Computed example of a mutant assay.
Amino acid sequence: MTDAARPSLRADAARNRDAIVAAARTVFAEHGLGASLDEIARRAGVGNATLYRRFPSREELVQAALLPSMTDYLAAVDEGLADPDPWAGFRDYLLRLFQLQARDRGLADLLVTTVRTPSGELEELRSRAFELTKQLIRRAQDADELRPDFRHQDLPLLLMANAGLVERTQKGAPDSWRRVAAFLLDGLQTRAATPAPPAPTERSVLRVMAANRLSSRHAEQRDS
């Protein structure tokens, strides 16, 4: 191979990677993280072998496609903490997450699923957002606005519930989550609180998220 040919091959590889990531972002948003990798390859205009060569595992493709969305998730926490009104900061943060889930089924899945990759970037962002969310919750509770029995491990449960709602109403009533969120937020305020059953432990919630973890083997990813 000549030296002149090498830059062309590198450029082709970069274009293929960019096309795969763009297609994955769209397909995951439409169908969730379990979407067909064959469909992603088709929309990217590449062969399956090219996709698998660039992204040996589904997790690595998910990370490349959804890292910007996880950055939006982290930004939502920062914006909530920056709000001088503790309740408004918490309320708008939760609504923002629900809205992100409604727009992007891939992100809706990602927020309640453990995704392990060699670099660990997605889980690092999730951990940072989770720690900041604890501050957001404590601040609203200290202001006597958020019910005192709400725990940080309750948040993934709310996101799981909203993800299910979004999935089932997406085609016929895509804005239904807004009405349910309004009811939910009323129930989260201190003035409306009534005794609730105990919260699940953080470990049990993490086990649920881990149980949803994506399979990393391409043999399990292809359509039957």
Rank of each mutant, 00 (worst) to 15 (best):
R6L: 14
R6G: 01
S8H: 14
L9F: 10
D12P: 00
A14D: 09
D18G: 03
I20S: 01
V21G: 04
A29N: 11
A29K: 06
E30L: 01
D38I: 08
R42F: 14
R43D: 10
F55A: 00
E59S: 15
E59W: 02
L61P: 01
A64M: 09
T71L: 07
D83L: 06
P84C: 09
W87P: 05
A88I: 14
F90W: 13
Y93V: 04
Y93R: 15
R96E: 14
D109T: 05
L111D: 02
T117Q: 03
G120D: 05
E124Q: 15
S127Y: 05
R128V: 02
R128L: 07
R128N: 00
L132M: 13
L136K: 04
R138H: 13
D142A: 14
A143P: 06
E145T: 08
R147W: 02
D149V: 09
F150W: 12
F150N: 03
D154H: 12
L155K: 04
G164K: 13
A173E: 13
D175G: 09
S176P: 00
R178V: 12
V180G: 00
L184P: 00
L185Q: 08
D186Q: 14
D186G: 13
Q189Y: 02
R191A: 13
T194C: 06
P195K: 07
P197K: 02
T201C: 09
L214M: 09
